[in-house]
Every structure is written in C-alpha cells, then in structure tokens.
Design a binder for these strands. Structure first.
Lengths: 200, 200
DNA sequence: CCTACCGATCGGTAGG
DNA sequence: CCTACCGATCGGTAGG
C-alpha cells in the first residue's frame, strides 16, 4: 500500500519540524516542502494538520503504554527482586521509548498541549494513568521499607520530568549511548528514593 | 512613570498567555485584549511581539543568575558544611525562582526556542553557564568523595530538567507549598548523587 | 491609545 | 498529486 509509505514520510517530516519549531510555528507548507509536494497536495494524504499531530502523539503514547505493559507483565521480578527493580524497569522502559525515536517523543512531551480539547483530554488521562504506574511503584517501595517515605505524586512527577528532559539533548550519534543513559538514569532515579540499607 | 506600569501589565498578560498556549499560538491581538486595548495600540508600548518575549525570557534568566550568585556568595557554606550543602542551595534557589513566578519561569523554560537567532544564542550560552554551576557542584562532590562517581554533565541535565518540570504542575494555591516542594526536591536531588556514608 | 489599513501567510477546498 | 483559489488572520504601520 503506497499510501501508507507516503503517510509515514509525512509524519516523519512533521515530527522533525514539530520537534524543532513546535506545532504552531510549523505550517502545512513547511511539511509539504519537506516531502517535496505542494502544500495543498498534503490534503490528499491527511485530513488536517491536527490529524498529523494526533497520529504522532497518539502513536507515541501507545508506545509508552506498551513498554510499561511489558514491564508489568514481567511483574514476578518485582516480587523476587524487590520494588527497586520494578522502578528501575519502568525507568529503563521509558528511556528506551524516548531514545528509540526522540523526535516523536519530543513532540509527545512538548506539543500535546496543541491538541484540540477532546484529544488533549484523552492524552491527559492516559498520561495520568501512565504516571500512576510510577506512583504505584514508589508506594510499593515505601511500604516494603525499601524506599524513603517520599510524597509519591511529587516524586513521580520529579522522576518523569527528569526522564523526559532527555528529549532536549539526546542525539543518537552523541557522546552518550542510549544504553549508558538508561544505566545512569536508572541509578540516579533509584538512589533518589532508596532508603539506606538497614543493619543486617 | 505610567508607561512602566502599562508595560508591566502587558508582560504579565503575555506571560500568562505564552505559558498557556505558547508564543506562536498567541497573537498580538490576544495580548492586547487581555489588557483591554486594541491590537494596534499595543505598539504604543512595545516594539514587537518578539520584544515582549525577550523581556520575559531575559528578565527570568537574570533572576536565575542572581539567585545562583547569591548562593555562590554564601560560598563558605560549601567549605564548612560540604559540597552537598552547595548543591542543595542551588536546588533551593532554582525552585525558589520557579515558584516565585511560574508563568515567567514556564515561558523561560519552554519558549526561549521561539527567540530570534541572536537572542536565542545569548540565552543558550547563559543557560549553559548556569548549568555549569550545577556541574561544578557535582564535580566538587565527587572529588570530595561525598558523591557517587556520576557523569557530571548528564547528571546536571537530569537534575535541572527535574526541577524545571515544576513549571508544568506547580500552582501557588495547590496542595504542596513552595517550601514543601523545595524541601522534597532538595532531598531527592541530593540522594540521587550522594555516596553512602563510609565506615566511621 | 484609536481607526483604518497594509502585504503576507495561514489552513483548507474545488475541481481536475 | 497539481493549479487556482477561498476567507480569516497574522504582525505591523500611518496618521492622527
């Protein structure tokens, strides 16, 4: 299906432009130019500029959810190795989704506010549900005595924005590999909440 | 000077709108409407829309710098109480500037990319110099054996974006006071880098 | 601070 | 996927 390829190209170009200048500052003609067609011709492939943004944001939201689902499916780890492992797995999964496609991740993080009200609400709810997985991991850790008695909501927000900050500086060909960053972010995040080892 | 008051009103209104919808999605007419004048009348007070953005971003950059300067002026603390105290002071100063005026802080964090090239470069340099204070505090801590041997650049980026994430959810009348948040962020940030206490 | 107005550009449609 | 075109809105200026 040729349509699918073209559509993909358009979303790639749009992701790149939205990442660089933002949704509002990117015109339909800018996107068209990037895929070498006339501005009006874009509408043979997409319903609207909003439609393109939605595809990018929704697809990325789904990727975050799938990655976190996979962590939860490997849940036994949390029981055998403790809540710290669960939080670390969530952190690694999140970093993986971001480094896997920073442009789309960046658009997801920064441009979801440009969505029209209903879609925006949909994403807001899903972000909250996603953040809730982090809150739950933190609560589990506290109850197990493995974590400091931090405020779960504040701490989840702190950690998630630290992870999301990656979209501002990660480059696939940069000094630090995705793996190195995932390791470092996991260490920083776990230490931020972990209680000192008790006696014995 | 009446001009100064009106100018202030315009910048307040613009900060609020840029914070909510972003610079590109805010029109000159939107700003004018918020201060109850005609769109074109705005130009009796400001040179351009860019000019308003620049005032907000530059003023906020200066507030961050002044706050960090004050921390450095109280430098003896770092010598007497150790590098951990210095990092904590930087974190507290940063959180203070953000909570003091989230709208402007939010515009600083998110909209500096909308600046024209020269001004954008100016802010990029100043952000880097500011981040360098965090990197230096981390390096000092590592050298003193008080911190884990983390990557200073990656860690400074991690911590600063965690702090900046505050602009997305802080509300002056919210559940958590600025003081509570500063305490919690200082604890999380210090634990993220601190080495476990050695024997003795 | 207003009215009147400018050229440029916006997202999108019609009709092929 | 193109040409031709739409009404709306953009940032900004002129002249008072």
């Amino acid at each position: 299906m040729v349509e699918t390829t073209r559509r993909r190209e358009i979303e790639d170009a749009a992701s790149s432009l939205f990442h660089e200048r933002g949704y509002s500052a990117t015109s339909v003609r800018d996107i068209a130019r990037a895929v070498d067609i006339q501005g009006a011709s874009l509408y043979a492939h997409v319903a609207s500029k909003q439609d393109v943004l939605w595809s990018i944001v929704e697809g990325t939201a789904a990727r975050f959810e799938v990655a976190a689902d996979a962590v939860e499916a490997a849940d036994p780890g949390a029981i055998v190795f403790g809540p710290g492992v669960h939080l670390i797995s969530l952190v690694r999964a999140h970093v993986g989704v971001v480094t896997d496609d920073i442009e789309r991740a960046s658009v997801f993080v920064h441009e979801w506010r440009a969505l029209d009200p209903e879609r925006r609400d949909d994403i807001a709810r899903r972000r909250d549900a996603y953040e809730d997985r982090f809150r739950a991991a933190i609560v589990d850790g506290i109850e197990a005595g493995a974590f400091e008695p931090v405020d779960p909501a504040l701490t989840a927000a702190y950690l998630l924005t630290a992870l999301n900050g990656l979209v501002a500086w990660y480059r696939p060909d940069g000094r630090l590999s995705a793996r190195t960053i995932a390791d470092a972010f996991a260490d920083l995040s776990l230490r931020a909440v972990r209680a000192p080892a008790g006696p014995g």
